[in-house]
């Protein structure tokens, strides 16, 4: 009885009594969700175009942020540092496609997946070797990002909005809109969608797979850099981020592996869900720390009932 009360009644009473707490939690969940979405977006881009499940996307986020901070630490102007980082990501994309993906064409997907796990380790250890393992502060102010916060009074309490979070949400929206235009309106974007639809048909009308893959990996690199800047502005540039980045996997399951809107909505659901669950149910009944697994368990349940995700293409495949 006590437990039922804790599950079904108390959380809602708390929500009603403290609307500011609820709003604050929802906002934090929304912000976390945007970042999960951005990381998941990188996965989806690569998966759609090449069928490669890029495990290294999470570490690419850290790597991009590290390069940016590292280059800036050499005394380079912040905006120039962003350009240089983009160059490094382009170089990484070219190397990965030429050295890893091209020799593995036609191998089973799982082999490619394991190759990206190997890549993850190279990037983690290589990044630590070059830039050092200690957390670094992001160059938020130098990049012209806002740092203050504003309050909003609701029902007797206040809700705090960090400006950087608002900026992150806005930039994420711009990025996604930009990607949508790129995919739908440009020549390269159309070629990308053709490759995503059918590799062989795309090859037969003269689209170079290698070039498209490089473009896609570079686009994923740009998304990774954006996610890295936003994330690191909230905390620090550190390798702990890669654990959080693993949460992009349940986001993908929820949204569908091939759907860009799915990645975004899945990210928001996971972000909101885990914060609300932790506050109202996890910390009271289960003793806290539920954020570590909430997303994965949701994905597990989802897989049992709707394996293709919310927006994914329904694969008719016997298992």
């Amino acid at each position: 009885m006590e437990l039922l009360n804790q599950i079904f009644i108390e959380p809602f009473q708390t929500m009603y009594a403290l609307p500011d707490l609820l709003l604050q939690t929802l906002w934090e969940g929304f912000v976390a969700g945007t970042l999960y979405s951005l990381i998941a977006l990188g996965f989806v881009l690569i998966f759609k175009a090449s069928g490669v499940f890029n495990f290294a996307q999470g570490i690419m986020v850290v790597f991009a942020a590290l390069v940016l901070v590292g280059v800036h630490a050499l005394g380079v102007n912040a905006y120039l540092a962003v350009l240089i980082t983009l160059g490094v990501m382009a170089l990484l994309a070219m190397t990965v496609v030429r050295v890893v993906l091209k020799p593995l064409v036609n191998q089973p997907d799982i082999i490619l997946f394991m190759a990206t796990i190997g890549l993850t380790y190279i990037l983690i250890a290589g990044g630590q070797l070059v830039f050092g393992g200690e957390p670094k502060a992001m160059i938020t102010e130098e990049l012209g990002l806002p740092t203050g916060s504003s309050d909003w009074e609701v029902g007797g309490g206040i809700v705090i909005f960090q400006h950087i979070d608002i900026a992150a949400a806005v930039i994420a929206v711009i990025l996604i809109a930009g990607l949508a235009i790129f995919f739908n309106k440009t020549r390269v974007g159309r070629a990308l969608r053709a490759v995503a639809d059918d590799h062989q048909a795309a090859l037969s009308v003269g689209i170079s797979l290698e070039y498209i893959w490089m473009v896609v990996w570079f686009a994923a690199g740009v998304v990774a850099l954006t996610a890295g800047i936003m994330w690191a502005a909230k905390s620090d540039v550190s390798f702990a981020l890669q654990v959080v980045a693993l949460k992009a996997l349940p986001v993908l399951v929820l949204g569908g592996f091939t759907s860009i809107p799915g990645a975004i909505i899945g990210g928001l659901i996971i972000g909101l869900g885990e914060k609300v669950f932790e506050l109202y149910w996890g910390s009271t009944i289960l003793g806290g720390g539920t954020e570590a697994w909430f997303a994965f368990i949701i994905a597990l349940l989802f897989l049992l009932y709707r394996p293709e995700g919310l927006f994914g293409e329904k694969l008719i495949e016997r298992i």
């Binding site: 499940f53 997907d109 799982i110 997946f113 693993l246 996997l249 349940p250 993908l252 399951v253 592996f257 697994w293 994965f296 368990i297 994905a299 597990l300 897989l303 049992l304 394996p307 298992i319």
Partner: peptide, 14 residues
């Protein structure tokens, strides 16, 4: 029994 490949990666991570 219902899924394989990458999806299984997610459940084992769970």
């Amino acid at each position: 029994l219902r899924i394989k490949g990458f999806y299984l990666v997610v459940t084992t991570l769970a």
